[in-house]
Amino acid sequence: MLTEKKILIVEDEAMIAFDLEDVVMSRGATAAVCLDVKSALEKAEACNFDAAILDYNLGGHTVLPVADALQRKGIPFLFNTAVADFENLSARYNGAHVCRKPANEAELVRLLVQLTNNLAGGAFGPKPA
Protein backbone atom coordinates (compact mmCIF):
# COMPACT_ATOMS: atom_id res chain seq x y z
CA MET A 1 0.00 0.00 0.00
CA LEU A 2 2.76 2.44 0.96
CA THR A 3 5.56 0.39 -0.49
CA GLU A 4 8.79 2.32 -0.98
CA LYS A 5 7.12 5.56 0.00
CA LYS A 6 9.10 7.96 2.19
CA ILE A 7 7.10 9.42 5.03
CA LEU A 8 8.19 12.27 7.33
CA ILE A 9 6.83 11.93 10.86
CA VAL A 10 6.95 15.03 13.07
CA GLU A 11 5.84 14.24 16.61
CA ASP A 12 7.33 15.34 19.93
CA GLU A 13 6.13 12.39 22.01
CA ALA A 14 8.55 9.52 21.42
CA MET A 15 6.09 6.72 22.08
CA ILE A 16 3.57 8.12 19.60
CA ALA A 17 6.30 8.82 17.04
CA PHE A 18 7.48 5.26 17.47
CA ASP A 19 4.00 3.92 16.84
CA LEU A 20 3.51 6.10 13.75
CA GLU A 21 6.87 4.93 12.45
CA ASP A 22 5.77 1.36 13.11
CA VAL A 23 2.49 1.96 11.29
CA VAL A 24 4.10 3.21 8.09
CA MET A 25 6.98 0.70 8.22
CA SER A 26 4.53 -2.17 8.58
CA ARG A 27 2.96 -0.95 5.31
CA GLY A 28 6.28 -1.11 3.51
CA ALA A 29 7.23 2.55 3.74
CA THR A 30 10.36 4.11 5.17
CA ALA A 31 10.02 6.77 7.82
CA ALA A 32 12.04 9.66 9.14
CA VAL A 33 11.07 10.64 12.65
CA CYS A 34 11.66 14.16 13.92
CA LEU A 35 10.80 15.20 17.45
CA ASP A 36 11.26 18.96 17.15
CA VAL A 37 10.75 21.79 14.68
CA LYS A 38 14.42 22.37 13.96
CA SER A 39 15.30 18.83 12.92
CA ALA A 40 12.00 18.50 11.03
CA LEU A 41 12.79 21.62 8.99
CA GLU A 42 16.26 20.26 8.19
CA LYS A 43 14.79 16.91 7.14
CA ALA A 44 12.04 18.51 5.06
CA GLU A 45 14.59 20.62 3.16
CA ALA A 46 17.08 17.79 2.71
CA CYS A 47 14.84 14.93 1.55
CA ASN A 48 12.03 14.48 -0.90
CA PHE A 49 9.24 12.84 1.02
CA ASP A 50 6.10 11.44 -0.48
CA ALA A 51 3.99 12.62 2.45
CA ALA A 52 4.23 13.83 6.01
CA ILE A 53 2.37 13.41 9.31
CA LEU A 54 2.57 16.54 11.43
CA ASP A 55 1.76 16.98 15.09
CA TYR A 56 0.63 20.56 15.63
CA ASN A 57 2.10 21.35 19.03
CA LEU A 58 5.75 20.44 19.50
CA GLY A 59 6.62 21.19 23.11
CA GLY A 60 5.06 24.66 22.98
CA HIS A 61 6.05 25.44 19.39
CA THR A 62 3.77 25.05 16.37
CA VAL A 63 4.67 22.87 13.44
CA LEU A 64 3.63 25.63 11.00
CA PRO A 65 7.18 26.45 9.75
CA VAL A 66 7.53 22.78 8.73
CA ALA A 67 4.10 22.78 7.05
CA ASP A 68 5.06 25.96 5.16
CA ALA A 69 8.33 24.39 3.98
CA LEU A 70 6.52 21.24 2.83
CA GLN A 71 3.88 23.28 1.02
CA ARG A 72 6.61 25.20 -0.82
CA LYS A 73 8.12 21.90 -1.94
CA GLY A 74 4.75 20.50 -2.94
CA ILE A 75 4.90 17.63 -0.46
CA PRO A 76 1.44 16.64 0.77
CA PHE A 77 0.84 16.27 4.48
CA LEU A 78 -1.81 15.74 7.10
CA PHE A 79 -2.02 16.94 10.66
CA ASN A 80 -2.32 14.52 13.56
CA THR A 81 -3.07 16.58 16.63
CA ALA A 82 -5.08 16.84 19.82
CA VAL A 83 -5.01 20.60 20.21
CA ALA A 84 -5.52 22.99 17.32
CA ASP A 85 -8.03 25.17 15.59
CA PHE A 86 -8.95 22.38 13.19
CA GLU A 87 -10.96 24.37 10.63
CA ASN A 88 -8.51 27.26 10.31
CA LEU A 89 -5.57 24.90 10.11
CA SER A 90 -7.19 22.99 7.26
CA ALA A 91 -8.17 26.20 5.48
CA ARG A 92 -4.66 27.62 5.73
CA TYR A 93 -3.18 24.61 3.93
CA ASN A 94 -5.57 24.17 1.06
CA GLY A 95 -7.87 21.75 2.83
CA ALA A 96 -5.17 19.56 4.36
CA HIS A 97 -6.69 16.84 6.48
CA VAL A 98 -6.54 17.21 10.25
CA CYS A 99 -6.73 13.95 12.21
CA ARG A 100 -7.84 14.10 15.77
CA LYS A 101 -5.26 12.47 18.00
CA PRO A 102 -5.26 9.62 18.90
CA ALA A 103 -5.92 8.76 15.29
CA ASN A 104 -7.45 5.60 13.96
CA GLU A 105 -4.69 3.54 12.37
CA ALA A 106 -6.67 2.39 9.34
CA GLU A 107 -7.92 5.91 8.67
CA LEU A 108 -4.38 7.27 8.91
CA VAL A 109 -3.09 4.71 6.44
CA ARG A 110 -6.00 5.34 4.05
CA LEU A 111 -5.25 9.07 4.06
CA LEU A 112 -1.53 8.47 3.55
CA VAL A 113 -2.25 6.24 0.57
CA GLN A 114 -4.44 8.96 -0.89
CA LEU A 115 -1.78 11.59 -0.35
CA THR A 116 1.10 9.52 -1.75
CA ASN A 117 -0.84 8.42 -4.80
CA ASN A 118 -2.18 11.91 -5.39
CA LEU A 119 -5.69 10.52 -5.22
CA ALA A 120 -6.96 13.29 -3.07
CA GLY A 121 -7.80 15.50 -5.96
CA GLY A 122 -5.54 18.24 -4.67
CA ALA A 123 -2.00 18.63 -3.50
CA PHE A 124 -2.81 18.61 0.20
CA GLY A 125 -5.42 16.03 0.82
CA PRO A 126 -9.14 15.80 0.42
CA LYS A 127 -11.37 18.79 0.92
CA PRO A 128 -13.21 18.64 4.20
CA ALA A 129 -16.74 17.32 3.88
Partner: peptide, 21 residues
Amino acid sequence: NHRVKNLFAIVQSIISSTSRQ
Protein backbone atom coordinates in the same frame (compact mmCIF):
# COMPACT_ATOMS: atom_id res chain seq x y z
CA ASN B 1 -6.84 18.26 29.39
CA HIS B 2 -3.73 18.25 27.23
CA ARG B 3 -2.03 15.64 29.38
CA VAL B 4 -5.06 13.35 29.38
CA LYS B 5 -5.36 13.53 25.60
CA ASN B 6 -1.63 12.98 25.27
CA LEU B 7 -1.71 10.00 27.61
CA PHE B 8 -4.60 8.44 25.69
CA ALA B 9 -2.58 8.86 22.51
CA ILE B 10 0.46 7.28 24.17
CA VAL B 11 -1.57 4.37 25.52
CA GLN B 12 -3.05 3.84 22.10
CA SER B 13 0.45 3.88 20.62
CA ILE B 14 1.59 1.26 23.12
CA ILE B 15 -1.39 -0.92 22.32
CA SER B 16 -1.15 -0.64 18.57
CA SER B 17 2.64 -0.96 18.30
CA THR B 18 2.80 -3.88 20.73
CA SER B 19 -0.05 -5.79 19.10
CA ARG B 20 1.53 -5.22 15.70
CA GLN B 21 4.78 -6.68 17.04
